[in-house]
């Protein structure tokens, strides 16, 4: 089967090795006999709802994010329609902030967001930098850990009742205080975690792929054939231990 990924603003938002996430999706799809086509959706390109089974948006520096935010305004309705239509979404770091309702700078100025995630972000003084470990439960009863690295000055606040992506075991998370990290709305995941995120958390890559397949077929998310993930497990273990030892502390 062919799975189509829309990679939003790859030329602007690529600061934390976002291509590692794309490479993992690509290989893990191929190993299951699926073809993964990655289409860049850049400034001035139109985003057609339904055309992509998975949308990916990465992180950038403040300057690049401001440039992107301006263009993203024009894609807002299409992006919401795409997610509404069941496309899987992964938004990392800056991309996560941009898909919230707004980002407020220290001087009070606001950058409007897409509003896919019920949250807003406020610029903070000290950056929250370090290894981070999460406990997640995307499927009820199935608790899985996620290990990564966070580096953000923004404090993200979820609306009342919004579902975080995971709970912080060690690290800062959304705002350094609430214990919540990221946000999940149906098949859309937003998170501050890079590392990159997917190589050392391959189960999440498979979760996204399965939901991308579901979007394509219009059916249920399939159970993908298992792969040998020894190296991934080792890398996850080292990263998780780092977070426990030294991650997320002011």
């Amino acid at each position: 089967m062919k799975i189509v990924v829309g990679h939003l603003y790859p030329e602007y938002l690529n600061i934390y090795a976002d291509r590692g996430n794309i490479a993992v999706l690509q290989r893990r799809a191929a190993w299951r006999g699926h073809e993964l086509e990655v289409q860049a959706v850049s400034a001035d390109d139109t985003l057609e709802p339904g055309a992509h089974d998975l949308l990916y948006i990465g992180g950038g520096q403040d300057r690049e994010q401001a440039l992107v935010a301006h263009d993203l305004k024009g894609k807002r309705n299409q992006l919401l329609a795409a997610a509404d239509g069941g496309a899987a979404v992964l938004a990392v770091c800056g991309g996560y902030q941009l898909l919230g309702r707004f980002y407020r700078f220290a001087n009070g100025e606001e950058l409007p967001g897409v509003g896919l995630f019920p949250l807003h972000t406020i610029a903070g003084e000290r950056r929250m930098i370090g290894d981070i470990l999460l406990d997640t439960e995307l499927v009820p009863g199935e608790r899985r850990t996620i290990a990564g690295f966070e580096n953000h000055a923004g404090r993200t606040y979820l609306d009342e009742g919004a579902e975080p992506f995971g709970r912080v075991v060690a690290g800062f998370g959304n705002d350094g205080a609430s214990g919540a990290e990221g946000c999940r709305v149906g098949r859309a995941i937003g998170t501050y975690l890079h590392g990159p995120l997917l190589p050392r958390n391959p189960w999440l890559a498979d979760w996204l792929l399965a939901h991308a397949v579901a979007h394509r077929t219009g059916g249920e998310a399939p159970i993908l054939a298992p792969l040998t993930d020894d190296l991934e497990r080792d890398a996850h273990a080292v990263s998780a231990q780092r977070a426990r030892d030294r991650g997320g502390r002011f």
Binding site: G20, A23, V24, R27, P199, R200, L231, E232, D234, A235, A237, V238, S239
Partner: peptide, 13 residues
């Protein structure tokens, strides 16, 4: 000490 991460870099290449 992050050898495993390098292994993934090469595996996914």
């Amino acid at each position: 000490n992050r050898a495993a991460e390098l292994a993934l870099r090469f595996k996914y290449a």
